[in-house]
Structures are given as C-alpha cells and as structure tokens.
Design a protein around this nucleic acid. Structure first.
Ligand SMILES: [Mn+2]
Ligand SMILES: [Mn+2]
Ligand SMILES: [Zn+2]
Ligand SMILES: [Zn+2]
Lengths: 133, 133
DNA sequence: TTTCTAAATGAGAACGAGTATCACTATAGC
DNA sequence: GCTATAGTGATACTCGTTCTCATTTAGAAA
C-alpha cells in the first residue's frame, strides 16, 4: 500500500484520539473537533479512524450497542481491554490463558483462522463509589 | 411479566430458528419464512427473536459486522461459541478458565458488574477442505 | 518555484439494521 | 360468544456508516 498523505485532517484525528480518555466513537470525535473550531468533515473522521485502525495505530471494538469505538492504545500488538461502561476508563490487558484456551478449543474442533475479540465491560471503582451505573 | 400469547407467528419463529444450523439474523429468518410461504412480518420476527433471547430460549450475539444473530441453543445457561464464519456451524463451549480470568481481572482493577462476551469465529474443517473462506 | 496528478476531502445522498407508530387482528380469560 | 388487550404488520423513522462526486491539496517531478 502506498504511504498515506499527511493532511491536517489526519493529524487532527490522531491528536484528538490521543487526547481522549477512553474509547470514543467517530461521531463523538467529530463533535469534539468541530467544537474546537475545526471544519473537518464527518466522513473524513470515519476514513481516518478506519485507516489508523488498519495500521494498528488505533484499536477498535464494538460497543455492546453495536457502535464502533476507537482508542489510541499504549500497548502495541494484540491485547484486550477492561472498559468502564460509565466513564469509559480503560485498562489494557494481556491474557495468556485466553490465548491458550482459544488455541486449544480451535485445535479440538478442527477450526482454523480463529478470531477472538475479548473485551470486558464493567463499572470502575470510582463510578461505583459515585453511584453511577 | 405476564405470559406470552401463543401465536402462530411466535411458533413459526421458534420452529424456523430450531431448524437453522447456526446463528442467523432476523432478516435471514424472515426471508426463510417468507420463502416458505409465510406472511409473517419483519417486525414480528424481530420482536419474537428478542423475546426468545430474553427468556433464554435463544442465544444472541453480535457478528463481527455488527449484526445481531440468534440461535436456539442446546446448552442451558451461560456458555460460549465457536462459529464457522463460512457455514455458520456452531460448537457450544464452556470456558472455566475464561470465567476465572474475568473474575480475577475484575478484582485486580476494582471493576464490578463485569460483562464478558467471548465468541470465537473461525473456519471449520469441512469449509477449509472445500477451499471456502 | 511552478506544474501536474492522484489521493484526500466534505456536503449530502444513500444504505441498512433495527425501532416506533398505529390501525387492525386474534388470543385467552370471562 | 364477548371483551380487553397483547400481538401483528405495513410503513415511517432513526441513526451509524458508507458512497458519490465535484473540489481541493499533498507531494513528486520538472
Ligand atoms: Mn487475545
Ligand atoms: Mn463466560
Ligand atoms: Zn468509570
Ligand atoms: Zn464451516
């Protein structure tokens, strides 16, 4: 694939994603950018988030409601998440036991090219203390 | 909740779901029913699938594409799935190690009410042999 | 620096899964 | 059988996401 051009829009998405605390949707990010005076288009936010996810610069996952969420992750490579469903605060997890279990189950049933998405949603200590849900 | 009325539509959804091999979407099921001569409405299929999932008669999950899929499962209670992304063939899994890992991670980070959705998508032996993907 | 061209952009149309509406139907209790 | 009301279905609608296409612009070449 030919290298991506450096547009201020792409850089704005990158920066805004890095500033976000947890996972954010394309629409949320677009709103944040527009509120801060940017004229960036929604389609461009979608395109750049997808592109950043492709290259591994961003992680993406589906919320339980089916929305695509993105995050600029500290950890490189394959990992999982524990996400507060109230405030969005996110912990990055490695899960050797889950990786092994996946391999074992696949082998047992003769399945190959197994894709596993394991993200945990819960309520963080702070949100529980504050009575949020 | 008051008991559900027994309509032929509800029974048709139940039966069609039981006949389906793997996980199916509401739209797929509606098409199958219409193709076999039924006049059932799409909204009714959605309603009954949601209702069957509520009572635990059916399992539901999100496909990687974000579509809601349903299946009439043999196993009662909480379990997981290994699904062929080509033919939809599904194995039901119990995953003690994953349950324990979830609990452990939650406790470690002080998260509560942790919800975990662990379904594996892969390519079954038969589909691999047939060169499908 | 100027020129050139394909990649990128953005406004808005289109798409698709799912939900809401509401007049009508039919189940189940009497 | 009568009746109250849960259920149905055609259709309008919502909303996240993708497509279209005219316009802009990054970046390489001259
Ligand atoms: Mn993993
Ligand atoms: Mn489990
Ligand atoms: Zn929280
Ligand atoms: Zn298969």
């Amino acid at each position: 694939m030919q290298p991506k051009r450096n547009t201020w829009q792409r850089e704005a998405v990158r920066a805004s994603l890095a500033e976000a605390h947890g996972f954010v949707s394309a629409q949320q990010l677009h709103q944040v950018l527009r509120d801060s005076g940017s004229t960036i288009g929604l389609a461009t936010v979608y395109r750049n988030l997808a592109s950043l996810a492709d290259t591994g610069e961003a992680d993406s996952l589906q919320s339980p409601e089916g929305e695509n969420l993105f995050r600029s992750c500290a950890t490189q490579g394959h990992h999982h998440h524990l996400i507060c469903r109230s405030c969005g605060d996110t912990k990055e997890l490695s899960a050797t036991v889950v990786e092994e279990w996946t391999q074992r189950v696949g082998a047992e049933y003769g399945f190959t090219e197994i894709e596993h998405v394991v993200d945990l949603f819960g309520l963080c200590e702070r949100c529980r203390a504050a009575g949020r849900e």
